[in-house]
Design a protein around this nucleic acid. Structure first.
Lengths: 313, 313
DNA sequence: CTGAAAGCGCTAACAT
DNA sequence: ATGTTAGCGCTTTCAG
């Protein structure tokens, strides 16, 4: 029994079991079609080889693609992913974290919604491997992997400013949200505006506003300031912007979006974007989490992945 | 211990445990913050309350949204979902099924790729609850939940035929795939064409064709027959169609797509679609699977959900 | 109502 | 190199 167990767990070498025997056991195992019970194994070892991935919304292209890449990357490291959507709902997120905790996942990947500080801190205190993605919590010292939102927004705004004539009016449309990615994008916009000694025009939309209403707000904002160009903080907002333009048949302000979308390259005119490097983000996330799992009690890794401008004008 | 276990498993009534005691235990449990170990529980009961969801590609909007709704629906039934993308790869799918099997999921939800007949049959033989979605396997008697692809394509083609003048040329662009959903869409198109005693124009594209090449193929097909209208078998293909038109600056044939996409309503001109009722599909899927889990050894449920035409022309 | 104890399938220390 | 055994944390039968 012991021998078999060792062989099955790739400890033949370590335990100095003869190669002949190893092969014999392995082939016999295969013939009988024996499959170890993972539950029992996990119960015994405390390792589930499962990672919990909690994203804001798996229905969202950005997260769906991230999830897919993370899944693949985890697989290459011998881990599997269990995902869930948090819907940015604090209560639901806490429940899901508890659930995964109960299921004893070996680690967490999480897009934290606001108000999750204590919950995350508790995980950290319990020495649960964890990496935040897309945004992070300023008050908790955790590992995280995020895009360089500041520079992305800064570069985009610079581009818009350079593109327009002298008295250029470049606006910024974002969400009422204090999450770091939103704050950084705003800061990037501001910095570029300030560098040019220009005037800032900022509009924030309520996250759970009806599309109809949001479109109307965007319309008012656009007209009120007669903007020449607008940077949207998310692709979802930019799409609302396009709807607005279509609905009211507006003369196009130049539009720039954070996050790409199939729509943008096909749109007439095509929409330029700040694109996030989801391959790098995913790879960094897993490598970061694997590190955490490896050496408990270590300091946190904070990774910032550059964005790229895709100019389509 | 026994009593506590009963109370924790909602068997107070059944086991005639006094309400007072029940409450006392419950409140104490809460105070101590005791959480049952799900692994041990599952090992003992053989129930994991986990469902395996294997979709073709979680990065695809249709599946991502389905996954989200299925997740929610499962949650309402006390189940959780573990997802994976199969990439339509036979080997990978088999591995994933084995993996979930090892992890003792209580049931499977699967978009079967071709060549999966035996594997699925094996699951059925082992009495594993299973429901196929999006497409099914003609040779295996399983439960499934699919859209009414035939009628969807039929109605769309009818619409196109009615919309065009006398000598209307309506083409159909699909994939080289024998999966049922593709076959049914083709059949629906054919039936409508035949009903009108019209000529069919069909083009199939290789599933893993480069976009570039596919666009060129579509271009040739469109021009060769001077088509007035085209029905695309998937939204992905329709997007390639739009790219083609844009790239070659073609006069627009009327375009119809199977499956909606954010792009289509914003496009100029807007694109009409056959839309699948993902809410109904998700709900049916879970209710079907729950049924399977409830009474083992029962006959299979086959559910066909109607599609709707969204005319945007 | 409660306590004792078996057992789910596995790992790993220990003895042989 | 192999057999024996304890125990991971829970459910559930059986006696009290």
């Amino acid at each position: 029994m012991t021998t078999v167990s060792f062989i099955l767990n790739d400890k033949s070498k370590e335990k100095r079991i003869s190669e002949a025997l190893t092969k014999k056991v392995l082939s016999h195992i295969k013939k009988v079609g024996y499959k170890p019970n993972q539950l029992a194994k996990s119960l015994r070892t405390g390792q589930t080889k499962m990672l919990g991935l909690l994203v804001e919304d798996i229905g969202n292209t950005f997260f769906a693609n991230m999830a897919k890449l993370i899944e693949k990357s985890a697989y290459n490291h011998g881990y599997h992913i269990s995902y869930c959507s948090t819907d940015n709902d604090e209560t639901k997120t806490k429940e899901l974290i508890q659930l995964f905790y109960d299921r004893q996942v070996d680690g967490f990947i999480l897009t934290p919604s606001e108000g999750l500080e204590e919950t995350v801190q508790k995980l950290i205190n319990n020495n649960i491997p964890l990496v935040l993605i897309d945004r992070y919590l300023t008050e908790v010292d955790t590992s995280y992997v995020v895009s360089d939102n500041f520079k992305g927004a800064y570069d985009a705004t610079k581009h818009l400013l350079a593109d327009q004539g002298k008295s250029k009016k470049v606006g910024f449309i974002s969400l009422y949200s204090n999450q770091t990615q939103m704050r950084d994008r705003l800061d990037g916009y501001m910095k570029a505006i300030d560098d040019h000694k220009n005037q800032a025009y900022i509009k924030k939309i309520n996250m759970d506003e009806e599309d109809e209403e949001a479109v109307s707000l965007i319309h008012d904002f656009l007209l009120e300031h007669k903007l020449d160009a607008v940077l949207f903080a998310t692709n979802y907002l930019a799409i609302l912007g396009l709807k607005t333009i279509k609905k009211y048949n507006l003369k196009y302000p130049e539009i720039f979006s954070f996050d790409d979308h199939t729509l943008f390259s096909l749109h007439e005119p095509p929409i330029s974007v700040v694109s996030q490097d989801i391959h790098a983000l995913s790879a960094e996330t897993i490598s970061c989490l694997i590190k955490e799992i490896g050496n408990k009690n270590k300091q946190s890794n904070k990774v910032v992945v550059p964005c790229a401008l895709k100019i389509r004008a």
